[in-house]
């Protein structure tokens, strides 16, 4: 049982590390723009590096039919957007200071982060 218990504790540690501690690096923009695919339950890519103090444009393409994925919210920037199915939706991110801004669906099941640096 000791080994099983140790394995259980290790599993909990892995969950904590994987979901909360680990900070994945972001994907850089190309020429001030990037496309994010909303598909199969996630934003791909989900972590985006954007330059500080510059306006950026992110194009969202939603191919996931689940209504959960329809609304995109970036609360820090007061952005609230409806993503039409199979539509390209360009979202302009205003120039902002370095920091991190979460973006997600209404239920926070689709999660991503804008890393301003």
């Amino acid at each position: 049982m000791l080994w099983i218990n140790l394995a259980g504790v290790a599993l909990i540690a892995i969950i904590v590390w994987w979901f909360w501690m680990y900070k994945p690096s972001g994907v850089a923009m190309q020429d001030g723009a990037i496309e994010i695919l909303v598909k199969d339950g996630v934003y791909q890519p989900s972590n985006i590096n954007i330059p500080a103090n510059e306006e950026s444009t992110i194009t969202f393409i939603r191919t996931d039919a689940s209504p959960c994925s329809e609304i995109l919210q970036i609360p820090d920037l007061d952005i609230n957007v409806t993503l039409g199915l199979n539509k390209k939706v360009k979202v302009t991110i205003p120039a902002s200071k370095p920091g991190r801004h979460a973006f997600h669906c209404q239920m926070k099941m689709y999660i991503g982060e804008l890393i301003v640096e």
Binding site: E55, T63, L77, V81, G84, N86, K88, K90, P94
Partner: peptide
């Protein structure tokens, strides 16, 4: 002024600007 523009997926360039949503915080 908009911070959102929508286009059909079929095109490479946005072919329309419907469903645009104003965002006062980001004049564009």
């Amino acid at each position: 002024n908009k911070n959102v523009a929508t286009s059909d997926l079929a095109g490479d360039t946005p072919s329309g600007a419907q469903n645009s949503i104003d965002d006062n915080s980001s004049p564009t």
